[in-house]
Write a protein that binds this DNA or RNA. Sequence first.
DNA 1: TTGTACGCGTTATCAT
DNA 2: ATGATAACGCGTACAA
Lengths: 342, 342
Amino acid sequence: MRVKRPTSFDIAELAGVSQSTVSRALRNDAMVSEDTRLRVAQAARLLNYKVDVNARNLRSQKTNTLALLLYEDPVTSQSLINPFFLSMLSSITKASARRGYDLLISFQQSSDDWSADYAASKRADGLIFLGYGDYLRYVDKISRLDEVSTAFVTWGPVVAGQPGHFIGSDNVRGAVEAVRHLVGRGRKRIAFLGDISEHCPEFRDRYTGYVQALEEAGLPVIEALYADAAASEEVGHQAILNLIDRDGPIDAVFGACDLLAIGAMNGLRERGLRVPEDVAVVGFDDIVAAPFTAPPLTTIRQDTAAAGELLVENLLRLIDGRPIETTQIATSLVVRGSCGGV
Amino acid sequence: MRVKRPTSFDIAELAGVSQSTVSRALRNDAMVSEDTRLRVAQAARLLNYKVDVNARNLRSQKTNTLALLLYEDPVTSQSLINPFFLSMLSSITKASARRGYDLLISFQQSSDDWSADYAASKRADGLIFLGYGDYLRYVDKISRLDEVSTAFVTWGPVVAGQPGHFIGSDNVRGAVEAVRHLVGRGRKRIAFLGDISEHCPEFRDRYTGYVQALEEAGLPVIEALYADAAASEEVGHQAILNLIDRDGPIDAVFGACDLLAIGAMNGLRERGLRVPEDVAVVGFDDIVAAPFTAPPLTTIRQDTAAAGELLVENLLRLIDGRPIETTQIATSLVVRGSCGGV
DNA sequence: TTGTACGCGTTATCAT
DNA sequence: ATGATAACGCGTACAA
């Protein structure tokens, strides 16, 4: 027994005005006398009227909605999402809510179900891309978005010739800071964990910072201390075991992300090495779990709150046709037990 | 220089059929000859046509979208969301994607910005409520939803007389299992951490299970070993300190959620007590961080993957007017270092 | 199997 | 400051 949903016409009748006036009154849109505004508001409350957003969107060609597309390599994620992105997601949600935008989210599992039609089908006014995934795989699709002038921003490093607008942490500086910290504690044989192929430009930037800090300290960059690794705990675990067993002693590990660092700590423990006494460990991200590991993880914090704000803010600028401003976010070193802290 | 978006009329012209036929062909909806279907599909691809979902939704009175409303007590959450809910969020996203539904998400920060109009304004076909928040505060609003026959499901325990459909873990059994495990390791003075007021019925159920397991083991329920605590790490930390300092020795802690248990472990360490030798600890949830704590946290796992599926599945049933089936999910004990494991 | 005609509920435009 | 009217783009009876 469904009651008919009231329309603006019903409100109009009840308030004794025309339907178009109702529309204006509710939107605070144009000049409406205080008197009628109140009568309309009251009538609306009485009938429990809510604007039909589909009609509104259709007419106004605006959705007041953003879409967040999270993509991760299926290889990397065993049905679990990297905590860092969950944190980003949380801050993006809040940022868009503060701006009065709804947020639609979608996890892209394979590159096939690429449902970036969100904009084309007028489901959203703009798109936010987020992921540690393989960027290369998405470039052509993203270019297509660019061609049809869809508004979108991507979380990540600026890659030469990449279409669209990238916003991200200053990965190079962050990594420099991490490695400087290790060097400052007297570490000399510092392993790097992470995939630095062109598929993972963020990790590549962090590797660049790693090299930079080593050189600046006059330390050699030892190739054997680099271990390719996708972004997960298990992978980090395996990678460090292989590295230790094959290439001998290390006194520190810099993980390109916290999950890798955590995996490494587990591997080190398995080999009877103490953290930080024998091997100091620094990660990158500062995920929620980082303070709770054993020992607590020293890491480079990415300011997800600021990141969410910046992504949303800039996306809205794009939607309005205004120019984008800042695109880089400062990181900060968080010292905990795994290197230099308690 | 924006190009005009193609409409179904444009496709119709290009394919040499009527607009209504285009609509049918694209929806695979009615009888359409293979021939015309192909011509239409080709024309659509050529013009890069996408259905305007607002028009579609308006016309069909269906959105193919679900809304996820996450609410947490502002007291409890200092701008950080409980990892458990992030995990739920992730699984719900996937579940609804699998069903071909878009997901709209919203974090309810205060009870004021109660934007549960998602259904009333035809933004979504159904709602999912999720939260460790104060249930009582939401009951009346939820009742109103029930009155206007909005389709919605709530993650949580079944509370007598509560409107709507609740779906959740079997908190009592889970807690029983947790405490049995502690008892089985010879623990006798087992503290309980968590708010068991009517505001937190889930925690209350877990307390019920705690009491049940103690009684079944012939152990006394010692009131002094209960500590009220909201769901956060800091609160757990403080609570255990107070409890130890005031009420003397304990040999185990059962935290109503993992964050509380983790906080407790930190507090115990601060007082020089070893986990699990001096005090064994068991949590509830099995959040992402649980395996990484020191020692790894023994806990009751809530099957978030199954939960997400069940919530979405049942919500869709409600939307279709079909009856709801299962509403309880089994938990499982995960033994790790903090009690009985390595 | 396909075409015709209308309506979904709102916002925009042009009057007054 | 308000009213009348025309779109917005698609789905669906109904007719053919």
